[in-house]
Write a protein that binds this DNA or RNA. Structure first.
Length: 421
DNA sequence: TCTGGGGTCCTAGGACCC
DNA sequence: TCTGGGGTCCTAGGACCC
C-alpha cells in the first residue's frame, strides 16, 4: 500500500522575509509579484486582515499603511536559496523526496513503520536548521496528502502534521469544496457546480464516465486519487525540461518597435543564459507580444511567431537573432503592448548533441563556448546584466519592471549580507 | 481589477503516410 | 468520391499548478 506525505512551507515568501527581520515577528507581511502588481504571499496576520491572495497592490495601499503592513517586492534569489536548504534537510531524513515546487515536496513513505513520528521529526529539524515553518500531510495518495497538509496547517491542534486515515477520508472530503482540490481549477469547478457538485465527496460520487468526458483523464485521475487509489507516482527524477521562458510585463505600455526590440533582445539573452545553465540547447525560438487584456478600450493584439534554428543552439547571438526575426512577424504597428516574452523549445541536452555534416567547425564552436562562458561568469560575479549585448544595453529603459521594495539578497550577494550589531 | 512569471499536460484538428 | 482503417507528427488553445 503506497503512502505519501506532502511537506508545505507555510506562507513561504513571507516567512523568508521575516527570517531576516525578526522584529516583524507579529507584523503582517505581504510579498508582491514582479512589477509590484499583486499580492502573492501573506503572513497569517495579513490573511487575518482580509487581504486576499492575488489582491492588486494599488487597491490595498491604504490598508497596508493603516495596518502597518510590511510590504516586500519578490526576491527570488533569497527564496530559491532558502528553498534549497529546506529540501536538503528533507533529503537527509526521508527515503525518497520529490521536489514539487519552490515551497513543496512529496515524500514516498511507503513501508515506513511510523510515518507520523518521522514527519514530526522532519518538521522540527527544518525549523531548527532553516527557521521555516512547514505543514505536513500524510495519506495514501498525493492528492489526499495535499488535502491532509491543508488540514495540518489550518488546525493548530495537529501541531503541523496530520495523517489522514481511511476512517476520516470521507469526512474530510465532505468538508472540502470541490474547487479546493488539487487539480480542480476555476473552469472545472464551474462545470461541477452546474452538475450540482459542491464538495469533494459529491465529486467522488459522480459516474466515472461523466468525469472522463467532461474533465478528461486528468479529472478522472483526481477522482480516483480522492477515493484512495493512487494514480500519480513519485517522479523518479526531475522531468527533463521542455521549455525555457523569459517574459515580463513592462513598467508602462510600449508602442515603439525599437523599445520592444530592446526588451525582446534582453529576454532572449536571459533565456539563453538559463538554457546554458541547465546544459540544454534549443531547436526553436518563440516570441510573443500582448496588449493588456484588461484594458478593453484599447485595440487588442496577441502576436506570436516561432522561428526554427538550423541546429540546436545555446549561443546567445543566434538565439537573439531568431527572437528578433520572430518579433518582426509577431509585431503590429499601432498597438500599445503590455508584455512580451521569449520561449525556447525543442530542448535537447547539449552533451548529447548530434554531430552532422552541417555542424559548425570545432574552432568556431570553441570560440562560441569561450565567449558565452565569459559572459556568464561576469554576470554571475557582478550581477545579472553587467555584460550584455549592445541592443539591450541601456539599463534604464521604459520597459523595465517596477521593483521598488525588494529586500536585500541576504544569502546570495556578498554586498547584501545582513549586518550584525 | 490598474491582475506576475514560469512551467506542465491534454485535446482537437490538419498534414501526411501506407 | 457521399473516400477505410490506422498511424505519426505538429500546432494551437485550454486548463491547471505554484
Amino acid at each position: 500500500m503506497p503512502l505519501y506525505a506532502l511537506v508545505d512551507c507555510n506562507n513561504f515568501y513571507a516567512s523568508c522575509e521575516r527570517l531576516f527581520r525578526p522584529e516583524l515577528k507579529r507584523t503582517p507581511i505581504v510579498v508582491l509579484s514582479n512589477n509590484d502588481g499583486c499580492v502573492i504571499s501573506r503572513s497569517s496576520e495579513a490573511k487575518a486582515l482580509g487581504i486576499p491572495m492575488a489582491a492588486p497592490a494599488f487597491q490595498w495601499e491604504h490598508a497596508f499603511r493603516r495596518h502597518g503592513v510590511a510590504v516586500f517586492s519578490s526576491n527570488y534569489a533569497l527564496y530559491g536559496d532558502l528553498s534549497a536548504r529546506v529540501m536538503s534537510v528533507l533529503e537527509d531524513m526521508a527515503p525518497r523526496v520529490e521536489v514539487y515546487s519552490i515551497d513543496e515536496a512529496f515524500l514516498d513513505l511507503t513501508g515506513v513503520a511510523d510515518a507520523e513520528t518521522l514527519c514530526r521529526a522532519l518538521r522540527e529539524r527544518v525549523a531548527r536548521h532553516t527557521g521555516i515553518p512547514v505543514s505536513i500531510g500524510i495519506a495514501r495518495t498525493k492528492t489526499l496528502a495535499k488535502l491532509a497538509a491543508g488540514r495540518a496547517k489550518k488546525r493548530p491542534e495537529h501541531e503541523g502534521v496530520f495523517r489522514l486515515d481511511e476512517a476520516d477520508r470521507e469526512g474530510l472530503l465532505a468538508a472540502t469544496e470541490a474547487g479546493e482540490v488539487w487539480g480542480v481549477g476555476h473552469r472545472s469547478a464551474k462545470r461541477l457546480a452546474a452538475r450540482g457538485v459542491r464538495t469533494a465527496l459529491d465529486f467522488i460520487r459522480l459516474p466515472q464516465q461523466w468525469v472522463r468526458t467532461e474533465l478528461t483523464v486528468t479529472g478522472l485521475h483526481i477522482q480516483l486519487e480522492l477515493k484512495g487509489i493512487s494514480c500519480l507516482d513519485m517522479a523518479a527524477a526531475p522531468a527533463p525540461r521542455r521549455s525555457v521562458l523569459c517574459s515580463r510585463s513592462f513598467g508602462q505600455l510600449i508602442e515603439d518597435r525599437e523599445h520592444l526590440r530592446e526588451a525582446v533582445c534582453s529576454f532572449a539573452a536571459r533565456a539563453a543564459e538559463k538554457l546554458r545553465r541547465a546544459g540544454l540547447e534549443a531547436q526553436a525560438v518563440q516570441v510573443f507580444v500582448l496588449t493588456p487584456r484588461h484594458r478593453q478600450e484599447l485595440p487588442q493584439h496577441q502576436g506570436q511567431a516561432t522561428i526554427g534554428l538550423p541546429l540546436p543552439s545555446d549561443f546567445t547571438p543566434e538565439i537573439v537573432d531568431a527572437a528578433l526575426r520572430g518579433l518582426d512577424e509577431a509585431f503590429r504597428e499601432g498597438f500599445a503592448y503590455l508584455k512580451a516574452g521569449v520561449v525556447l523549445l525543442g530542448l535537447t541536452p547539449a552533451s548529447a548533441r548530434q554531430r552532422s555534416l552541417l555542424d559548425l567547425p570545432p574552432e568556431e564552436r570553441q570560440r562560441r563556448r569561450a565567449l558565452t562562458a565569459v559572459m556568464d561568469a561576469v554576470n554571475a560575479r557582478h550581477g545579472r546584466g553587467a555584460l550584455r549585448l549592445a541592443l539591450s544595453a541601456a539599463p534604464d529603459r521604459p520597459w523595465h519592471m517596477r521593483q521598488h521594495r525588494r529586500s536585500p539578497r541576504y544569502t546570495t550577494n556578498w554586498d547584501e549580507l545582513p549586518r550584525v550589531g
